[in-house]
Every structure is written in C-alpha cells, then in structure tokens.
C-alpha cells in the first residue's frame, strides 16, 4: 500500500531496442483522413523528430500515440504491448507528453503540478490518507522530494510555490517537461517545445532534451524549427498531408527534394510530383 516509486531502472533497457512501434496508423474524422498509413519506430536512447507543414497531421498522430484518439486502423505498441485506449493507462505504461499550447493546471502551484504528474507512480489508499499513517507521510515526503528533484532538473526549484499561471512563458514550458518527467516515462513526447521561444531559450531547450535523453529516456519531438530539430535528432520523419514522406538522419531529410518541395513548393518549371502540392497549409 505504501510501496512507492519504481525508479527509472526498468525504463532503461539496452539502447537500440524498439520502444514505441506505430504500424500503419490511420486516423479518419468522418471523410477526412488526418493520418494515413504512418509507421514509426522509436528505439531506446533515441531522439526522433517529426516535422511537417502545418496541418500535416503531426499532432493528430501524437494523439493517437497517447491514447487521446483511438486510431481508425493500425496499432501502436509500447515495449511490445499494445497500448490501451485510455490515456491514463498510457501514462502508466510509461509515455508522457507536453502540449503544443501549454496545458498546465494554472491554479495549482509549480510543485503541485509536478506532484500531479507523479500520480501514477504513487499509491495512496483513501483510508491511509485520512488516517495520515507513517506510510502515508513517508510516501508524501518522498513524492515531494522527487518532485523537487525534477524541478531542479529543469531549473525551477526556486519557483516551487508559485502558481503555474504566474510563471513566464518559457518557464511554463519547462514546467510541462518537469511534470511529464515526474511520471517516470520511458518515452517523452514533446509537441512543439520551442514554439514562441527566442533563440536563447531554444538553445536551452535543446540542452534540456539532451539531458533528458541522458537519463535514459527516449524522446519524440514535433517541431517547426529546422535548426533545432536537425541539431537534436538521431532520425527525422517528415509528415506531409497525413502521410510519411521520408524518414532518415538529418542529411538525408535535408537533401530530399520532396521535403524541400513540401515546405517551399515546387519550382515553377519543376516536374509535377503528386506528393508535393503547394496548397498544403
């Protein structure tokens, strides 16, 4: 009952083994196919980037991975097991995420936000909480210590008592990362972590992501900032109009003319490639 935290030990199997496997994921909303037949593998110890023009289906794909949407077709497995369609069980299994538009619990303090993140890694019987037994106190103290550790990791330890809504923008993003880490994930999904950041903050985020990886946590990141993504990622997948166009290391993706076309449009006299429509927003 008072058995706490399973530390990060089981989150770090030998690097290079498949952690998350999405196979042929299709997501349709009525007649609209937002994600079409996308497969993606994230191995342990990797940082994978997911890029694509706005509306390419990146966030929808993310939502399929985290159980917010149930894919119309295809499967998503994490550590070899198919993910349950309930988001809270996905978190329990070991995936955590941040959001494109920050979604903190604004009326709770920074520390409380991280404690909510620890929800799946703590246990508390209603009765023991009411009676405040020694086990409960120990667990609560333990939980707070762990939460402070994550705040320290992202550099927010001195803001623990501040209400989340009073944090400046960049720190709110950091808090989201701390909150996600608090669930002790094996895989962290970041949805546009540098949106709205200045170059300095972006560089700091880059270092933060590397530090996360060094803790044995694989990272899947959606981003628009090309420099950020190519500096960071071991592999990059490009999503255009719901389909995966290319996947490979930075050089491969940067050199692929279809990717260039998807972002910049085809040259005027260029050959008409069916996968490079310009109207894609």
């Amino acid at each position: 009952m008072t058995d706490t935290t399973t530390a990060t030990v089981d989150n770090a199997p030998a690097p290079g083994t498949p952690l998350l496997q999405a196979s042929n994921v299709v997501m349709r909303f009525g007649g609209l196919t937002a994600v079409n037949d996308v497969s993606l593998t994230v191995n342990t110890g990797e940082i994978i980037g997911l890029i694509g023009p706005n509306g390419a289906g990146k966030t929808t794909f993310f939502n399929c991975l985290t159980g917010l949407y149930v894919p119309t077709e295809g499967t998503v497995t994490y550590k070899g097991a198919t993910l349950p369609p309930k988001p809270h069980k996905v978190t329990q299994a070991g995936m955590a995420r941040t959001f494109q538009n920050i979604r903190l619990f604004h009326n709770m303090t920074v520390l409380e936000n991280v404690l909510v993140g620890r929800h799946t890694r703590t246990k508390e019987g209603l009765i023991s909480a009411i009676l405040r037994g020694p086990g409960y106190r120990r667990e609560e103290a333990d939980s707070r210590a762990k939460a402070m550790e994550y705040l320290d990791f992202v550099g927010l330890a001195n803001k623990a008592g501040t209400l989340a809504r009073n944090l400046p923008y960049g720190e709110q993003r950091k808090l989201e990362v701390a909150r996600a880490l608090a669930s002790e994930p094996g895989l962290l999904l970041l949805d546009e972590p540098t949106a709205g950041m200045n170059p300095q903050e972006t560089r700091a985020t880059e270092e933060l992501v590397f530090a996360v990886r060094d803790r044995g946590i694989a990272v899947l990141v959606i981003e628009h900032d090309m420099r950020f993504i190519f500096n960071l990622c071991d592999r990059v997948a490009v999503l255009v109009q719901g389909q995966k166009l290319v996947e490979g290391d930075a050089a491969t993706v940067q050199g692929d003319e279809r990717v260039v076309a998807a972002y910049l449009g085809t040259p005027y006299e260029g050959n008409a490639d069916s996968t490079t429509p310009e109207e894609n927003q």
Binding site: Q92, A96, F105, H106, T120
Partner: peptide, 13 residues
C-alpha cells in the same frame, strides 16, 4: 481544471 490533461497525466478521471 482540465480533464483531458489530467487523463494524460495518468489520472483515472
């Protein structure tokens, strides 16, 4: 405050 995010934080809403 935010049921969807709470779910994603592992809370059984």
């Amino acid at each position: 405050q935010d049921p969807d995010t709470a779910k994603l934080m592992g809370i059984n809403t």
